[in-house]
Design a protein around this nucleic acid. Structure first.
Length: 269
DNA sequence: CTAAAATCCTGGTGGC
DNA sequence: TGCCACCAGGATTTTA
């Protein structure tokens, strides 16, 4: 499932080739893919736009146009990539933007959870998001401030996009393992030292995951815009029953807020 | 406030 | 081999 490191990898790949392209048309094969506006208005407004840059905010791909923004959320199975217009299309293509030079930007999404937004200001979509965990301005002090006001479980807190933008189910588990904190702990019970560990784990895990181009699980759920798999190796996610890489205790799995949580019962307190 | 459950979806999996 | 029930998961919405 694409989270911050995977979306960042896709954004960097598209940034190599997409800027400067002019969008000459659009086809939406699965109408619900389009969060806004309605298909006819989308087609009218996107045609003739030029791509200026490709970036990321939280788990959203942010494509800056000469007028407005195209935002794409990949959700569970979404992929965004460029292809020659005469390449065969697979049945899971939900939307296609025609580009100049006989190319296309294709949105493929087997599970149909992904969404595309065309807006004048990207804040129309991204306003509710919490801070970017890797931004220079995201300080320990700000993290502590946000943490102190919460009483929920750490696992649920890290998954909350209004608390912090971009962390999903894999990296929330990896961050808590690195911080040696139990996913069931309540946020307002952390000692000062534990707050520092969590802050540093958020930054180091996401940073290392980006440097490894993200995580591709054995089912190959994620590939970047150039079909490359991520090389990050999860230490607890999906390793239920296997030995903890630090102490050898079998990794446990539980459900918190409807999400699977993997952790070492010995290392994470 | 937290939190759980339901919702949207389909590919993959385990049981028989 | 085939069929089927079930699960995963991000975000939102509903309910307690």
């Amino acid at each position: 499932m694409p989270e911050l490191p995977e979306v960042e990898t896709v954004a960097r790949g598209l940034q190599e080739r997409l800027p400067g392209s002019t969008i000459t048309g659009a086809t939406v094969y699965w109408p619900r893919t389009l969060a806004c506006p309605a298909p006819e208005e989308f087609q009218a407004r996107i045609t003739g736009r030029r791509v200026e840059s490709v970036g990321r905010r939280g788990k959203y791909l942010v494509i800056t146009l000469d007028h407005g923004y195209l935002l794409v959320h990949l959700k569970m199975s979404g992929r965004l990539f460029m292809a020659p217009a005469d390449d065969a299309q697979d049945p899971h293509i939900r939307a296609v933007l025609d580009l100049d030079g006989g190319r296309q930007l294709r949105f493929r999404d087997a599970r149909k959870f992904g969404r595309i937004y065309l807006v004048d200001e990207h804040e129309e979509v991204t306003a509710p998001l919490g801070p970017e965990p890797l931004a220079d301005c995201f300080s320990l002090e700000e993290f502590r401030r946000r943490l102190g006001r919460r009483s929920g479980r750490l696992k649920s807190m890290l998954l909350n996009q209004e608390f912090l933008a971009g962390v999903g189910n894999i990296y929330s588990d990896e961050i808590l393992f690195t911080a040696r904190l139990n996913p069931l702990r309540r946020a307002d019970t952390l000692t000062a030292d534990e707050q520092v560990r969590l802050y540093q784990a958020v930054r180091s895990v996401l940073h290392r995951a980006i440097n490894s181009s993200g995580t591709t699980l054995p089912d190959r759920n994620y590939l970047d815009a150039e079909d490359r798999a991520g090389e990050y190796r999860a230490e607890v996610y999906g390793r239920t029953g296997r030995p903890c890489l630090v102490c050898g205790t079998p990794i446990e799995r539980t459900v918190i807020g409807g999400r699977s949580a993997h952790f070492c019962p010995h290392c994470q307190l």
